[in-house]
Design a protein around this nucleic acid. Structure first.
Lengths: 235, 235
DNA sequence: GGAAAAAAGTGAGGAAAATCAATTTTTAAA
DNA sequence: TTTAAAAATTGATTTTCCTCACTTTTTTCC
């Protein structure tokens, strides 16, 4: 059985198109009327779980993680968002407080859009409406896959799959054809996979001796995606 | 820390209001124009993972599980839907095939609404549009909680929490004040918790000896919700 | 009501992963 | 460049949970 059979590649959000891409100029203008562009340093927090949502955030450049803390304060990363993605709109739409926290994983440019402007644009724009419905339902499908991943797969399989997914997110930072370096801390990788850092380290060194990956300091280079797909599938 | 702090009760979908409740009569008429009402026997499948979605399903009466099969054919239950809930609309909205399967857990009445009618109503009805956006984003929040539940909590904690959640779903079948019997197979409970049946059985008998639950054949009666909340939280 | 089938329950043993306790390497900052 | 701090790595130990093999109970259906 191919990996597509179980986890269709397109459901893993390799290239999630921006919600705002080719939005009618008029709508975009309204949405961006009072935007606030800000530089964030690596590690800075964008918003915190349970906080009242005051707006949405557009990643103009950089990467951010969405995560929840457990009762011992350990992070569980739910999603890694890339340049062009929107953060914090679920809470605005559902009327809940933020269900999770978000922090940038590298120096980033984040655009803040006030809640009122977002909701007003939504009232006026059929396109944004449809786009959001489609994005949300797709995200739902992706999250469903993540859930079964956690419930049914071993740590080794999960790590293999996340390496494939995460590599795609770092791809955009490198010239086509150049080796892609995953520049993510072992801690973040562990919390994305849902395991302890030590396990990630151990399995990475297994992958190294199997010729699947190579490391340069903290950075990880995937040498053989096909083998990773195999590991993610069976084993 | 209270359970609300970590998993706010209202985010566990105890009483998910029907999407179709108080929809304008006109919209409802259009939506239901070509509906097909059908009786399903316990265990019957409503739709299958990866199938092309031909419409949406409204649970007029009964309960259904949404689930995915792993490569060894074992079920992972993602969600238990109750009377009044809508199934299969994520796929219609996102343009994907069904990401999961659905089957009724007891004899049920299911109303089928053709894809075209649903989409046409959506085009015409602002109310339905807003309702769906809100429901979807809320469901997203709920699913996010489920994800961290799997990633961060032990089997014992997960079982305790699911007993609380599931009990609420069976509540509607009993007179107020009467003891609520959870009439779910150990297998289904195990696959909802994400563990083996044996573990569920063992922990249930622990809960029994701790005076937390009582069983009558397959049926489970929760005697002490507060203790369950404690188990779900710490332990 | 009784037989067959299905589901629930029990126990032992083993594998996977978490935890604890270090050491070494890398990165960042003065 | 040096040094301190942070991050990565390794090994040993413990815990949790899964699996297998089996018995008992409950449910279903003639």
């Amino acid at each position: 059985m191919s990996i597509q059979g179980i986890f269709p590649i397109e459901k893993w959000d390799f290239k999630s198109e921006s919600i705002l891409a080719d939005l009618p100029g008029e709508d975009l203008k309204l949405l961006m009327a009072r935007k606030l562009e800000q530089a964030y340093k690596k590690g800075e927090i964008i918003f915190k779980e349970e906080a009242y949502p005051s707006g949405i955030f557009y990643i103009a450049r950089g990467k951010a993680k969405k995560y929840k803390l457990d009762k011992d304060g350990r992070e569980q990363i739910i999603y890694v968002a890339n340049t062009g993605e929107l953060l914090g709109y679920h809470a605005i739409l559902s009327g809940d407080n933020y269900p999770d926290s978000a922090a940038v994983m590298e120096d980033s440019i984040i655009v803040f859009i006030p809640k009122e402007d977002f909701l007003e644009t939504l009232r006026q724009s059929d396109v944004l409406n449809r786009r959001l419905l489609k994005t949300l339902s797709h995200e739902f499908v992706v999250l469903t896959n993540s859930l079964t991943l956690f419930a049914q797969r071993s740590v080794r399989e999960r790590l293999a799959l996340q390496l494939i997914v995460v590599r795609e997110k770092y791809k955009v930072d490198f010239e086509p054809g150049m080796p892609v370096e995953i520049n993510m801390s072992r801690d973040d990788l562990a919390s994305l996979v849902g395991t302890a850092r030590e396990n990630v380290v151990r399995m990475l060194s297994e992958f190294k001796s199997e010729g699947i990956v190579e490391t340069r300091g903290r950075r990880i280079i995937v040498l053989d995606v096909k083998k990773l797909i195999k590991v993610a599938n069976f084993s």
